[in-house]
Simulated assay, not measured.
Amino acid sequence: MEEYLTNYLMKHLPSTEQWVKELETQAKEDHIPIMDPVGINFLMQLIRLNKPGKILEIGAAIGYSALRMNEANPDASITTIEKDDIRYQQAVKNIANLKKESKIEIIHGDALEVISKLGEDNQTYNCIFIDAAKGQYKRFFELSMPLLEENGIIISDNVLFRGYVLDPNFEQPRYKKMVDKIRAYNEWLANHPSFITTILPIGDGVAISYKK
């Protein structure tokens, strides 16, 4: 049923431009995780509906999601952070190739340090997208909260992590610690007094946290 549903949704997605297909191919060939087509289209729809003027992305990878968010709202100013040097260089190149440097600023560095610096500089955002080291999600969220405007949203990707978080008996050594952290993060989000959070089974799981 799940496979049929995914295929059905894929068939009804909007068509994409050539540059999107090329970035998706690049990510696949280099084994770089990016949002799947259904997930990225959901994110783009959120951006279209909310029209955030300033977006902060934690985890740029090759610049794919930042460029798709720009596609959804060309008027938005996007700041994205990437720690990995190779991915940062790829993102810089991809953003430059599409001439989006005036709309997308990419910062090379550890997100925990960069977010703190953005806070010191009194930067604020209407939308924050977390898609980086999953074991650090709670810390990313905590550091990002002071940067979020009133009525803003924080979007967290991969919060169902391949469905593993649903299994209370999950014991696979390679992922157990990460799964435990994501499960704890979801519980923390659900009970946060300053946010209303909805977790949706889209892509690898997306949490939308609205600031009260």
Rank of each mutant, 00 (worst) to 15 (best):
A76S: 15
A66H: 01
I78C: 02
Y64P: 00
A91L: 00
N73C: 12
E82I: 05
I106A: 02
M69K: 05
T79P: 03
I86M: 15
A61R: 11
I81L: 05
N70L: 13
E71Q: 14
A66K: 00
K100F: 01
Y88H: 09
N70G: 11
A66Q: 03
I106D: 03
N94A: 02
D84V: 07
N94V: 06
I106R: 01
K99F: 08
I104V: 07
R68I: 05
E71G: 07
P74K: 05
Y88N: 04
T80D: 06
I62N: 10
Y88L: 01
P74N: 07
I104T: 02
R68T: 11
A72Q: 03
E101A: 09
A96M: 12
E71H: 11
K100M: 10
R68D: 06
T79W: 09
I107F: 04
I86Q: 14
E101G: 03
M69C: 08
R87W: 08
K99M: 10
D85K: 14
D84S: 09
S102P: 06
A96E: 14
E71N: 10
S65D: 05
K100R: 13
L67A: 06
I107G: 06
A91M: 00
V92L: 10
I106N: 02
G63T: 00
D85V: 13
P74G: 07
K103N: 15
I107A: 05
E105L: 12
K103L: 11
Y88S: 01
A66F: 08
K99G: 10
K103T: 13
